[in-house]
Design a protein around this nucleic acid. Structure first.
Lengths: 227, 227
DNA sequence: CAAGTATTCAATAGTTTAGTTGAATATAAT
DNA sequence: ATTATATTCAACTAAACTATTGAATACTTG
């Protein structure tokens, strides 16, 4: 095999991974899987894709090593193959956010809270949480919280936010997070909390990044994942 | 615009970047551009693509913000739009190397030197170079060296390696680098130097990574880039 | 201004991909 | 065993991508 063929072949292999990242549905699947393991039909329901289509996308992701699966009983559970993948997704998001005009436009028009206050960096949250200065709020659905969350975080899924305010210490600052740096849940939560006159900020990124950074996490109370 | 539409649209935008990375020729173009600015016809010649095809690929890369171009006289020069892109490419390579079986097989069968000796990390090279313990060898073509290289590195393009041995201090260890972590030039150089009985190692990655890490570089003696 | 070069545009054919549908397989529960 | 559920497979259509070709555009040089 010539040096030229090798190079071509190597780039072709890298391109396979790129191709796998080249579809919005697959990226959405990856974001959900990054929250914790998920079965095919859970993913199909969340994304709104058919089971067959979901399965096909998952197999593409698996073929390029982005996810792994494990059969348990009737279901097949998919997980990210490693934290490398979270880094790759963040790199992709970062480049898109900083260099694709459409992304910037989308974010600033839709995520109105975006620039009103800088999001809180991970390390800073860690310091403040340690000093007991803030309430850390996980606004993801209960199953995702159960699969793993920032140590000490309180879970109030977005839908129940207003009903559960009594569970929060209203004097302390609230820092909300969700699935990732562009997930709408935390933006939405911060906007609604501020409307209620509370001090609220957003963590700069989501649970997968927190976990990948090696920061302290807890896993849920072994809740069964029913729907 | 609903939250769901926003999410879909956002993932679709991220996917555009993924798609752009989903073709081996485009990845090869990016690697060349990462060495320094390049005109369309230079890139066409190096890659062996037609000018029209090269132009089309470059425009795709430009549309998703991976590269930028600047017209100067008769030629259009392309550059990476920022160092973010190098990080993204490295993340892609890393995931592929660690999780795609075919990539690992390719690398271990073709790059025979691969596991004989650990490649040298950047920081370690920096320390040793500072102490004057090693000769840093840039084995890329002269134009790429001229466009920028590791501070203090000697340039001997691979083709002239054996002819230019006299330029090297044969008693010191030689550390070779080239375009990136999987570029064959440095692997090849190390193999050939060792065959000649010299002490040679490979830098763990290439010039773009070195530069992006903020380590010291030099740019060439304003050579005109003719062919 | 004319000629030459570099780049881009437009049209095309062949290939690949996305998503749908219906069926096949495998496991669990009755 | 039979039934139900979860997942995958296979076949198909519509859409998108790649690379080629030839022409058009823009700039420089003589």
């Amino acid at each position: 095999m010539s040096s030229h063929d090798f190079k071509q072949e190597l780039f072709a292999q890298f391109a396979r991974v790129g191709k796998a990242l080249g579809n919005g549905n697959r990226l959405e699947l990856l974001e959900f899987i990054a929250q914790g393991q998920r079965s095919v039909d859970e993913l199909a329901k969340i994304t709104g894709l058919t089971a067959a289509n979901t399965s096909q996308h998952l197999q593409q992701l698996r073929q390029v090593g982005l996810v792994e699966c494990r059969k348990q009983g009737l279901k097949v559970y998919y997980t990210l193959s490693s934290d490398d993948v979270i880094g790759l997704l963040d790199a992709l998001r970062g480049v898109a956010e900083r260099h694709v005009a459409d992304v910037d436009r989308l974010i600033t028009t839709y995520l109105t809270v975006k620039d009103e206050l800088e999001p809180l960096p991970r390390e800073e949250l860690l310091a403040r949480a340690h000093d007991g200065l803030v309430t850390v709020l996980d606004v993801r659905p209960a199953e995702e919280y159960a699969a793993g969350h920032v140590a000490g975080a309180v879970n109030i899924p977005l839908a129940e936010l207003e009903h559960c305010l009594k569970d929060l210490d209203l004097d302390r600052e609230i820092v909300a997070y969700c699935r990732g740096p562009h997930c709408v849940l935390a933006f939405d939560a911060v906007a609604r909390l501020r409307k209620l006159g509370l001090k609220a900020r957003r963590l700069e990124d989501g649970y997968p990044e927190w976990k990948t950074a090696g920061l302290p996490i807890e896993t849920g109370e072994m809740m069964d994942k029913h729907d």
